[in-house]
Design a protein around this nucleic acid. Structure first.
Lengths: 194, 194
DNA sequence: AAACGATACGGAACGTGGTTCCGTTTGGCA
DNA sequence: TGCCAAACGGAACCACGTTCCGTATCGTTT
């Protein structure tokens, strides 16, 4: 029941291939935690006990691997948006809380924020995935807050997400920099003066 | 009259060495514009018409080269701080304008903002230089604004500089992201609600 | 002017990491 | 059991940062 669903165009992979894919995901997740998302390919392969080519066969680009590792968490974050909006708080408060979820996710992923906006073509798919999945959610929250007259207009969801993501870069390994506080200030800056 | 000043501990470099240093600075500046501050060492050497070792002889780390290339502009930015504060505007307005100078500097330097906070040990000197030179200036502006009761307290100059620097990352090559606007919102978020 | 020592030079060589290639192994099926 | 496509492992290749070493040049001294 893993990759059936979508027609039988996909002829079902071999058992060892599926086993290796799982093993690789686990290995990558573990290595990402200790060495960051830019850990050497060889390290991940070694941890999984496979050859490097096997990684490329399953995840052609590093972006594919990162996406696969974090997909669940990104989905959860995306789904939390509408829930927060419906939870009774003001739209601006909901926006703030949702952004906090996003920030918590990013700052706990060593180097992910940096790679997200590295501009490196190899990470395009990663960039695209995050944007496709989260920008609409953010846009919904933003519109609700704008509709309620709580925030200034003229700020695009895309831009806000990029800004927040940027603020999370390097948030680990620097005790003097608190990304959450900076993001809070940024969100406060959205509020209309009253 | 170039490197005399500080005692005669430095025994005056050879003429070709000084010529090469100048040539290298020009070449690096040119290459940085087109390929960013992370351009391959060999490219810079080729542009200058020297061997790679010559670069390392004059600028042991890439940070040293980048610092040398941009030193003048960083100094100018640092010196603009007190001037703005004395110019009659409110401290918060002066802070905003000074931050704008810093942002203008950063966004026009392909990849500099990213490298500034890359965490890579090789860039420590760069990080340190920027911080040593600009954080005190920022702190002065921040204190003035806080003293005038215009902004919330509890934000360190270091943290603000890091946040602003982060917001500038990737500001080139993405027409949908306007770092200046994000920074403006961040600075607005500093203001105390009245 | 010639010679000499220190300074500086260029490019080859080395290490690391990403990516590809190819000969071999293995799973699934007849 | 035997076959073939799928999948594998690791060597090979490329790009880049960094270091090393034999050579060339500067500036001084005789």
């Amino acid at each position: 029941m893993d990759d059936e669903g979508a027609g039988r165009a996909a002829p079902r992979k071999r058992a060892d291939a599926r086993r290796n894919e799982r093993t690789l995901l686990d290995a990558a997740a573990a290595v990402f935690v200790t060495s960051g998302v830019e850990a050497p390919v060889r390290d991940i392969a070694a941890r999984a006990g496979v050859g490097v080519a096997t990684i490329y066969r399953h995840f052609p680009t590093r972006a594919d691997l990162i996406i696969a590792v974090y997909r669940h968490q990104v989905e959860a974050c995306a789904e939390a948006g509408p829930a927060l909006l419906a939870s009774g708080a003001t739209p601006h408060a909901a926006l703030g809380r949702w952004i906090n979820l996003f920030v918590d996710f990013l700052v706990t992923k060593h180097g992910l924020a940096a790679v997200l906006r590295s501009g490196d073509a190899g990470f395009d798919a990663l960039h695209t995935y995050f944007l496709d999945r989260l920008v609409p959610v953010c846009a919904q929250l933003l519109e609700a807050a704008a509709g309620a007259g709580e925030i200034r207009s003229g700020v695009e969801a895309y831009e806000l997400m990029r800004g927040v993501g940027n603020l999370c870069i390097g948030a680990d390994n620097d005790p003097r920099y608190d990304a959450r506080r900076m993001v809070e200030i940024l969100i406060a800056g959205l509020r209309l003066p009253r």
